[in-house]
């Protein structure tokens, strides 16, 4: 599409001589043999084709700065339409849909209350360090997510509400916070990885957990260890998506990285193309990540009562442990780490 449109003026230009020659048709038809193909290179056309972006001889400029020797940025239009026509409307739709689905699931299945009621006995679940690391990650994520969404949806959602000047201040603060706090995010990912990885290796029982839909399908409870199959999925997706936003975020934060990529990669010839590419990947991952975390918060706070305390006081009710994480509960009962 984009390609054809940028070529359309050239095609028209090429068509003009043909249209102009139309009256000559009958004259040409009288000659015995077909006229030899005219090899008529047009140096002007070559030059302007080069300018349109397929420069084979390097252009130069006295003025420093990113991509300044390039006359026409051919990728800009594509990036613009991806951001304005895909990321913003479809990203918005996706997040709204996830919230609606969550609402529907909650309305139909309600909160998963304990079958045997609270035991009244608390067992230790997450250590202080695990909780500090979780909230460091979650705090950063919530700030980064909100500030990022301000940049993405603010123009359509906030400007009509608070006006351009007030939004300018909000957006400026969001950008600075996002760009600076983003630098810490990889640290949170590394910490949570080393803190919890040993409890998140997949085991035999996890497949069964998924087959039972986490306990939603069938009468019996889905068996789980320290973390169930769904939590392990959250853990690994957090690691993978976290690396994704961090790498693309660092590129967006430090243009020098983009310049370096241009110097070593045959796929990118311009600094801004690396930025455009990173921006799109960053935003796609960010939206999926936010959708995932919507689900996580919903499960931890609303859908499975009794879970939240594991990340606040560090303790959970013994029946919660027995019903939701039976294999883990059996372990701590056995080795006596259980306390009241």
């Amino acid at each position: 599409m984009t390609n054809f449109r940028s070529w359309a003026p050239i095609l028209w230009f090429l068509a003009l001589p043909v249209l102009g020659l139309a009256p000559l048709g009958p004259v040409l038809a009288q000659s015995e043999e077909a006229p030899a193909a005219i090899n008529n290179p047009n140096p002007g056309a070559d030059l302007w084709r080069a300018v349109r972006g397929h420069l084979d001889s390097p252009a130069v400029t006295q003025v420093g700065g990113h991509d300044n020797a390039v006359l026409v940025n051919q990728e800009g239009e594509r990036w613009m339409s991806i951001r304005n026509q895909k990321l913003i409307p479809q990203g918005g739709d996706l997040l709204i849909m996830v919230l609606l689905i969550i609402g529907a699931v909650y309305a139909v299945r309600g909160p998963v209350t304990l079958r045997s009621g609270a035991a009244g006995v608390q067992v230790q679940r997450h250590s202080v360090s695990a909780r500090v690391i979780h909230w460091f990650l979650a705090g950063l994520f919530i700030i980064l997510g909100l500030t990022g969404l301000v940049l993405l949806f603010g123009k359509s959602l906030l400007i009509p509400l608070i006006g351009k000047s007030a939004f300018g201040v909000t957006a400026s603060a969001s950008k600075e916070l996002h760009n600076l706090l983003g630098l810490l995010f990889p640290l949170a990912i590394v910490l949570i990885f080393f803190n919890l990885v040993r409890n998140n290796l997949y085991e035999k029982g996890d497949l069964m957990w998924f087959l039972k839909g986490g306990g939603m399908i069938g009468k019996t409870h889905a068996s789980a260890g320290m973390f169930n199959g769904g939590e392990k999925m959250l853990f690994w997706l957090t690691i993978i998506l976290g690396i994704g936003v961090s790498v693309t975020g660092y590129i967006l934060d430090f243009p020098a990285i983009a310049s370096w990529i241009v110097s070593v990669s045959p796929d990118f010839s311009q600094y801004r193309h690396v930025m455009e590419f990173s921006h799109v990947i960053h935003t796609v991952i960010a939206i999926l990540f936010i959708a995932l975390v919507f689900g996580h918060i919903f499960l931890a706070v609303f859908f499975v009562p009794g879970t939240l305390s594991s990340m606040t006081s560090g303790k959970v009710d013994a029946s919660w442990a027995e019903e939701h994480h039976d294999r883990w509960y059996a372990e701590i009962e056995g080795d006596g780490t259980k306390e009241s």
């Binding site: 990113h66 800009g76 300018g168 400026s172 760009n179 934060d253 930025m275």
Partner: peptide, 30 residues
Amino acid sequence: DKDICIGCGYCFYACPFGAPQFPDAGAFGS
């Protein structure tokens, strides 16, 4: 309007002619 601009650089990515320019300001040459 420079009072509202936040220096995000998006205009530079979209501009066909590389017209928008940015002075280095703030931490880490942002």
